Computed example of a mutant assay.
Amino acid sequence: MMKELENKLEQKEVRPTAMRLLVLETLQKQKAAVSLQDLEDTFEKADRVTLYRTLKTFQEKGLIHSIEDGTGATKYALCQEGCECAPEDMHVHFFCNSCEDTFCLPKFKIPEVSLPEGFVPMETNLLVKGVCVNCTA
């Protein structure tokens, strides 16, 4: 398992340090996106700055993407295999009003938006709010 994680980091040109391997392993186990605070709670003795830098490195290298879900805390989720988090890979996110988890819905792509001439899009985000399947069960 650790060798698999090391390979994943090396493929993205990220040096596989112990903390990076632990964070990647933790992110792979998540069913929903996590915040920096969530990771801090998971790694009690980890330095907040180190965790933040790890997330930023992962984001810059296309391992994870960030999600603004309206809670005031940026959430992070692993990119799907083969996804480069480019505009054509952008997908819908879902925020559950009940459990407050944020989910990636990679099969549901954000449709292309036509903008007036002279407008240059830099980022697109589509967040749907409601009640997730776990909370409606």
Score class of each variant (00 low, 15 high):
L105D: 09
V92G: 01
K31C: 05
R53T: 02
K3H: 13
D89K: 00
T102L: 03
C79A: 11
E4R: 13
K45D: 11
Q30Y: 03
E25I: 03
L9G: 02
E10L: 15
V113A: 11
D101S: 10
C132V: 04
A86V: 12
E13N: 14
K12V: 09
V113Q: 12
P16F: 04
T74H: 04
Y76N: 00
V133E: 13
A18W: 08
E44Q: 14
C96P: 04
V34L: 10
K61P: 06
P116C: 06
R20Y: 07
A137C: 07
N134Q: 06
G130A: 05
D89F: 15
G70D: 11
E88N: 06
C132L: 10
V128E: 03
Q30K: 14
T17S: 15
V34N: 03
R20H: 07
A33R: 04
V120I: 11
M122V: 10
L22H: 11
I67T: 01
F43K: 06
L36H: 10
Q30H: 02
K56L: 07
Q28V: 00
E6T: 08
S114R: 15
V131I: 14
F94S: 06
M90K: 10
A77Y: 12
F119V: 15
C85P: 02
L55A: 07
L55V: 13
G82H: 13
E81Q: 12
Q30I: 00
L5N: 06
C135Y: 10
A73M: 11
S98A: 13
G72C: 06
A46K: 07
D69C: 07
Q11F: 07
N97E: 14
D101C: 11
C83L: 00
L127V: 14
T42Q: 12
C104K: 05
S98N: 09
E25M: 12
E117I: 08
V128W: 03
F94M: 00
K107Q: 12
Q80N: 07
N125F: 11
K8Q: 14
E40N: 08
E4M: 09
N125Q: 11
L127H: 01
V49P: 00
L55G: 03
T124E: 13
P116V: 05
I64E: 05
T50Q: 14
